[in-house]
Simulated assay, not measured.
Amino acid sequence: MTPELILVAHGTRNPLGLATITEIASAVAGHVGTVRTAFVDVLGPNPREVLENTANSVVVVPAFLASGYHVNADLPARVAESGHTDVTITPALGPDPILAEIMRGRLAEAGWTPGDPVVMAAAGSSDPAARAELVHAAELLAELVGEVHLGFVATGAPGVADVVARVNDPRRRVFIASYLLAPGVFHTKLGHCGAHAVTEPLGAHPDLVALLAHRFTAPVGIR
């Protein structure tokens, strides 16, 4: 029997952010069939609620850029609470060279040129393993664009604004590469960090959609 597919995102009250998640899920569904959406925070339905109404086997793909608390603890807890016993949870999306390529494209759209320093802005995490993944993501981007510094917009130090201030130089333009999935409070904050320009979030980029679709069709479970 074909498994049911659930895309799990963080959740946001920002209309543009919610529309982006809806757009991503719809685009992924164009590749793999029906995709249901659940959220681990802010709004519902949460994964437990979706799974309680699901009898088939399930593949759950967390649309997160690193494996922090929501992926490692919150999501498995909601799955356990549902009582569903045939659920495969795939790893988080990042780090991945595909995401670095998308960021490079977003930088070009924002006017970045070789030689301009980049601050990769991530939400951040208190989980050491997740922070290591974010460091790796910044290294992947640096392989493509050169000088990259990592900053956090929500959890952990250094903050994005502090990193921008540190690398700022009147002779060079500093660009922020948004390592965020969708518009929302975190992305809005980046516009006030003193950089020359801020890229758009990763959003419903075709390559990100393809990455998600591959996770659904060739799942490697972590549970």
Rank of each mutant, 00 (worst) to 15 (best):
A80K: 13
A123K: 05
H84A: 14
V119T: 04
A121I: 08
V61T: 07
T113L: 14
S178V: 11
H196K: 08
E52M: 15
I176D: 00
T37Y: 03
G151W: 10
I21V: 15
H31T: 08
A161G: 02
P95V: 09
G221S: 13
D169A: 06
L75I: 06
G203P: 02
G115D: 05
A177W: 03
N46M: 07
A138D: 01
V71R: 09
H84D: 03
S26N: 13
L65Y: 06
R104S: 02
D74A: 13
L202Q: 06
A142D: 09
V160N: 07
P97Q: 12
T12N: 03
N53M: 09
R166K: 13
V167H: 05
L5E: 00
A137S: 15
D86E: 14
L202S: 03
V167C: 05
G156D: 04
G184Y: 06
E143I: 01
G11F: 04
P206G: 10
G191V: 01
G33A: 10
V42Y: 11
A132W: 01
D96T: 01
S125A: 12
N53S: 13
H214E: 15
G156T: 08
S57L: 00
P158C: 09
G124D: 09
Y179D: 00
G221N: 08
A213P: 02
K189Y: 07
P158Y: 11
G17L: 09
S82V: 08
R223M: 05
I21R: 03
T85K: 15
S126Q: 04
G221C: 12
G221I: 08
G151I: 04
V163F: 10
S57F: 04
F152E: 04
A110L: 02
V58L: 04
L43E: 09
V145A: 11
N56T: 15
V28F: 11
S67F: 05
A9F: 12
H205V: 07
T54Y: 10
A213Q: 04
S67C: 03
L144S: 11
E81F: 04
T22G: 07
A108V: 14
G94A: 01
L107E: 05
G203R: 07
A80N: 12
T155R: 13
E49M: 08
P95C: 12
G94D: 01
T113Y: 05
H187T: 13
I102Y: 12
A63N: 03
G124A: 08
H10N: 08
I98M: 11
P201R: 12
E143W: 00
L190D: 00
T85E: 14
A27I: 11
S67G: 10
P15L: 08
P170T: 02
A66Q: 11
A19N: 00
A213N: 06
P15C: 10
T155N: 02
L150F: 03
P117W: 07
T37N: 04
L150T: 01
Y179I: 00
A177D: 02
R171H: 14
A55H: 12
A9P: 01
F216M: 13
G146Y: 11
V58I: 06
F175A: 03
N168C: 03
H149N: 11
H70I: 11
P45V: 12
L190K: 02
N72F: 00
E139A: 15
I21S: 04
L16E: 15
T85D: 14
A80D: 14
A132M: 10
V164G: 04
P206C: 10
V185C: 00
E23A: 15
A157S: 14
